[in-house]
Amino acid sequence: MMPQRSLMLTLLSAGLVFGAWQIAGMIPVSYAFPTFLETMSALLRMVLDGTLFVAFGETLKPLLVGIAISAALGIGLGLWIGLSSWFDWLFSPIFIVMQAAPLAALIPLLVMVYGIGLTSKVFVVCIMAMPVIVLNTSGAVRNTPTPLKEMGRSFLGSERDIVLKIILPAASPIIFSGLRLGVSAGFIGAVLAELKITPTGVGDIISYSRSIADYPSMYAAIFSIIVLAVLFLNLLERLEDFLFEGNNRGYASDT
């Protein structure tokens, strides 16, 4: 009965919001504000003629490449930073500043250096996604519970064994959530790159339909990319809960 209530309320609030959208579009509050139903039918049309999927493919390309690079590089670097105080001293400040700074400002520079192709877009995704991945990994590695590390040493684990069998698994829930946050930041970067650098994929639909004042299509594209990102991130979160179910409760110290 409880989950039903929560589901009902979610549906109700979705109904209210979409209803308000519909009404605001019918008034209309602005010439550039289509109704909910117009937007949905534009979305349906793009789904049916396949343009949407082609666009998603384009948009996801730099995103996936960028995330893959950021994950490999970021986890490696984070591991290193977490294990060595010297690397911590050397690299942590860079990523701490990057985390706080509006890195989007680097885009014009990236375009000057790498042009307007895929490389620049991949870079945008990387600079957005990397800091949180690095900082999460290094923090998690640094904070591996001392008793676990001592246990490994007292049972004669080699450095390698301790890293691979104790530190990495202990850190993996936080590393994974760093990845999830990285993907979220990467989405922001991927869309930004398409709007700022060259219009491709979903960014192209948005820019093009705006230029011909086809607002329903523009809103539909935006709606779809947001839904895509939110669904994907939700999926990652579910996966995270599933994979690391016992980990967070299992430390004996939290009895």
Binding site: L9, F187, S207, I226, V230
Partner: peptide, 26 residues
């Protein structure tokens, strides 16, 4: 809480950059 939380969570992780063009036309 139950009415708003899904929306808040959604916007927290949504690529908000996509909304900027809407703001521009509005």
């Amino acid at each position: 809480d139950e009415m708003l939380l899904p929306w808040v969570n959604m916007f927290l992780s949504a690529p908000l950059t996509a909304l900027v063009p809407v703001l521009m036309v509005l």
